[in-house]
Computed example of a mutant assay.
Amino acid sequence: MSAHHTSGHDAAGHEIGLATDHEPHGTLKEYLIGFALSVVLTAIPFWLVMGEAELSKQVIAFTIMGFAAVQMVVHMVFFLHMSPKSEDGWTLTSLVFTLILVVITLAGSLWVMYHLDSNMMPRHESRQQL
């Protein structure tokens, strides 16, 4: 889909191209669906923490992170209008590339810190006997 261009002139009299076609924004229905999903995806983790659910802290933490990841996707789809069709897929491609770099950076940092801790930190015999 190519943008329809008209010509105009800047202050110096040079001809410039002006795009007249814009990609459509979301409808009210899409915004309301996104809002409702965001509220639900916020309320459930809030209830898990404040309602003192009978789950271990690790399960609650991973559940909250899962809901946070789903909520990020909801925001990107319903509010930022990211899809494979938007901007010929470049928006989604750059997002995926960014996520890959973040995962590599975080995983590498954790790996390096773990191995530095296990290989470089001195272990005291007196601490292990207590």
Rank of each mutant, 00 (worst) to 15 (best):
E54P: 00
E54Y: 09
H81C: 07
I33Q: 01
L106I: 14
L32R: 02
F78K: 01
E87M: 03
D88I: 04
W47V: 09
I33L: 13
L130R: 03
I104Y: 08
Y114A: 13
V70N: 04
L106K: 01
T91D: 10
G89A: 07
G8E: 11
W47I: 08
M72L: 14
T105L: 12
M1W: 07
I44T: 09
M82H: 03
F97G: 04
T105C: 10
A19C: 10
F62V: 11
I60A: 02
M50R: 04
V73F: 14
L41T: 03
D21G: 02
L116G: 10
P24L: 11
H81E: 08
E87D: 12
F97V: 14
I60V: 14
S109V: 06
A43S: 09
H124K: 06
L18Y: 08
H124R: 03
R127A: 14
V102K: 02
I64V: 15
H22V: 08
S94N: 14
S94I: 11
V39H: 06
T105K: 00
V96E: 08
Y114T: 11
H9Y: 15
S56Q: 03
H25F: 11
L80M: 13
I44F: 12
L110P: 00
E23L: 13
K29H: 08
A107Q: 03
S118Y: 12
T91M: 10
H115D: 14
M65Q: 05
M76Y: 05
A107K: 01
F79H: 06
L48M: 14
K57P: 00
E52F: 07
V70C: 09
A68K: 01
G13T: 06
N119W: 10
F78W: 08
R127E: 15
S94Q: 09
H22S: 09
F78M: 06
L92M: 14
F79N: 02
H115P: 00
A107H: 05
V77I: 12
T98L: 14
F67Q: 01
L41D: 03
Y31C: 05
I60W: 02
T98F: 15
G13F: 11
H9L: 13
G26I: 03
K29E: 15
F35L: 15
H115I: 05
L99H: 07
Y114M: 07
L37P: 00
T42P: 00
M113H: 04
